[in-house]
């Protein structure tokens, strides 16, 4: 890794079988990301945003080229090691929050720490800290069904941030939120990015999100069409 560089994408090509042929989702993408970046992939549907996020998140592997995340080549990771990389260093935020409905806010945020086998006392403190970051300390005992959409996404952010991951990957995090809640969420993430030096990578075509990005990478037909800071 060069200096602060934590993600390196080198000539990554990703093809999916489609009918009798293939569909190229990523077509020779070269990118690097440093620690603490607040960047996003923008572009129309089918441009390869989510596929690139999948590769960086070790959920998928490149067909060609090399993707290195935190010094580990994603294409060479076993299923188990990919899971470990996600568990220890990556946080995910989804468009539809995907909170576990039968658990309380506290328990939802606590879950990644259980996977990390963190002691109970440390877990409790970390969860309360995460809830304080997103301004939901008073909701720790609530269930997801008792929260608004904005609150649910803030819980999802707390869940992604509670283990202080090096990278957070967010796919259309504001798609289900109104403007007010979207700004609040993005401000929260921007603050966490500044305070914890966590790298945030977004996949979005929402202008509200794009305005907050410190670096905007435009994808078109699986290629990088623009990279603006």
């Amino acid at each position: 890794m060069k200096n602060n560089q934590i993600i390196s994408i080198e000539n990554v090509i990703k093809r999916f079988p489609m009918g009798k042929g293939e569909f190229t989702a990523l077509d020779g993408v070269d990118l690097t990301f440093g620690k603490g970046e607040f960047a996003g992939f923008v572009g129309p549907s089918g441009s390869g945003k989510t596929t690139l996020l999948n590769v960086i998140g070790s959920l998928d592997t490149p067909t060609q080229g090399k993707a290195t995340v935190l010094g580990q080549s994603v294409g060479d990771l076993s299923e188990k090691n990919a899971a470990r990389l996600r568990n220890e260093h990556l946080g995910f935020i989804f468009q539809t929050y995907n909170l576990l409905p039968v658990y309380t806010v506290f328990e939802n945020v606590e879950f990644p720490l259980l996977l990390l086998k963190m002691p109970a006392a440390d877990r409790g403190k970390a969860v309360l800290d995460a809830l304080e970051w997103v301004g939901l300390s008073d909701k720790e005992k609530s269930k997801p069904a008792q929260l608004s959409g904005g609150e649910c996404q803030r819980v999802a952010i707390a869940r992604a941030m509670v283990k202080k991951p090096k990278i957070v990957l967010a796919d259309e995090p504001t798609a289900n939120l109104d403007a007010k809640n979207s700004h609040r969420i993005l401000q929260t993430m921007e603050t966490l990015n500044a305070e914890l030096q966590t790298t945030f990578l977004f996949a979005t075509h929402d202008d509200k999100v794009i305005r907050y990005l410190h670096r905007k990478i435009t994808l078109e037909d699986g290629r990088v069409a623009g990279d603006e800071v």
Partner: peptide, 16 residues
């Protein structure tokens, strides 16, 4: 389905 997907995404192994 959602819960299982989130747990896999968060790094829980399939075996776990």
């Amino acid at each position: 389905y959602g819960e299982i997907g989130v747990r896999l995404a968060m790094g829980e192994s399939k075996g776990g």
